[in-house]
Design a protein around this nucleic acid. Structure first.
Lengths: 287, 287
DNA sequence: AATATTATTTGTCCTAGACAAATGAAAATT
DNA sequence: AATTTTCATTTGTCTAGGACAAATAATATT
């Protein structure tokens, strides 16, 4: 499709790996070893970008660069096969994927809405949406699914969940829960699923969305007198930053405010900071 | 609130100005001149960050660094006052802002929904949402409005527009329009407003959301047989990249596919690439 | 088995220079 | 007078190779 070479800036953007890190991997591990243009600048191939994206995904799972960066494509395949076992899929999920990958775009919303109406919010999210997103990620890693299909699914889910929250919000009561992600964490779908589940239980939710600076989160908690602050970390979030940021938040907020941490990024943490509640899955919220 | 010093990485993240650029501004213009920690690393103050954010906003308006970076706070005030003249506000907008800044969070959605029901989609978007977002930006620049309030407004609008699109989509007919922003452009609210307006006219819209790689946009156009591709550029998008990217898109797509470009970033462009339609405002779509 | 100590891995930051793309100003042309 | 061309300036992104501390793994000690 596009047999263009990419600058280091473009690779940083598309892989999520910092420039400095790309250069130092090259020095230390010998990968990626991009070509150079006549100015002496690194020019990465599409294949190198793709491998970097796969590597990034493995690092997000907790693997270490020293063991992953040097792997060949074949070894990567093997490692992925091991880490992401091919789940056997529900028939309805299979169907949704099928619509996503072969449909004409307008049907996807209808199929998902149908699932939702059959299952109700809780089951829809835990048994349909989450496995669906997992599978989409796996298929992407295998090259069986295009990125725009992933985008489309996100948008359609965004619309569906927001629509349902709208329908439920006016019945909401206390306690009030404030939701946000921290700067650097753009993945807001988890937040939205949580908001939907809470709305469904008639709990009042204020969703600030993604990338909210710490002091602003604190200001919002005070302003809206929130009883709980929910922060979501996708797998992509650097483990290191999580702890520091959450400790800082804990120190800035009164003890009466509960902090909930959720998302894949949290599941891998051993110890949680004191005064913080983990909700490992959306199945059992700490209510 | 937080009188902490920030590393260059944090400033890059929160101001949107690249590390390299921060260092070179320091060299060339003498601002920002951060303190150094004992490791010799730059440590920026909150005030420096704030000024950088204001500068960034002016650059997004098309001003040049050489004229802006060296300005004092007072001169910045003056420049902002000149560039963002205090618009006199509609009473209903005044009211929405008031709810945003003093309400308890749950009312905002209701107030906006009320405006929408009174005005209909077209007027709501052009006469309420757009001036509202403008004013919020101005107030933020003046330090009269907090960032979390901006986030909250975005989320509530996101929900409202998505809800209305849901209600309208199933009546949609041809032509089919595909919407997306390019990598680097995270601002998707413009896209959503466009999607809402089009849905309101019973036009079928497929919204891929933000930051979609070029080749993926092209793949999606073919897959969904879109008649029109709509790309939105916020003011923040680098003018340079716009032209190159759009030219590339034009070359990758058959002439039968119209390309629409919109958003503030486009308004400042002199010539458009050939074969591309501009919609300067959401008031008159090229239909 | 749990804890403390040492070794290794790893990412972010540093300096100072180079260069081309984009922009603005001036000159030449229609 | 308006448009195009040419030249000068501004500006951001990229380079190299080194340094260092925080996080993690491995080993020793209680």
């Amino acid at each position: 499709m596009s047999y263009q070479y990419l600058t280091i800036g473009a690779v940083e953007r598309d892989s999520g790996i910092a420039r400095d890190t790309l250069r130092i991997w090259e020095r230390r591990y010998g990968f990626p070893l991009p070509m150079r243009n006549d100015k002496g600048e690194r020019m990465y191939s599409q294949g190198q970008l793709r491998r970097l994206q796969r590597i990034r995904r493995l690092l997000d799972q907790g693997l270490r660069p020293g063991k992953v960066v040097t792997l060949s494509d074949a070894d990567l395949d093997a490692l992925e096969a091991e880490l992401y076992p091919e789940a056997q899929l529900d028939e309805s999920i299979e169907n949704i994927l099928n619509v996503l990958q072969t449909g004409d775009g307008s049907e996807l919303g209808a199929v998902l809405a149908h699932s939702y109406q059959q299952q109700g919010m809780q089951a829809f999210i835990t048994q349909t949406v989450i496995p669906l997103l997992h599978t989409v990620g796996e298929r992407w890693a295998r090259g069986q699914l295009q990125i725009f299909e992933e985008h489309l699914l996100s948008q359609v889910l965004l619309r569906l969940l927001n629509t349902e929250i709208s329908a439920l919000q006016h019945t909401a009561k206390q306690p009030r829960i404030l939701l946000a992600t921290l700067p650097g964490e753009e993945h807001t779908l988890g937040l939205l699923m949580l908001a939907a589940l809470l709305s469904f239980r008639h709990i009042s939710v204020i969703n600030l969305g993604g990338e909210v600076p710490l002091d602003q989160i604190v200001a919002a908690v005070f302003r809206f007198d929130a009883a709980v602050l929910g922060i979501s970390f996708s797998g992509a979030y650097q483990h290191d930053s999580i702890r520091g940021n959450v400790n800082q938040l804990r120190a800035m907020l009164p003890q009466s405010v509960d902090i909930w941490m959720g998302g894949e990024g949290v599941g891998r943490m051993r110890k949680l900071p004191p005064g913080v509640t983990r909700f490992a899955s959306l199945d059992n919220l700490p209510l």
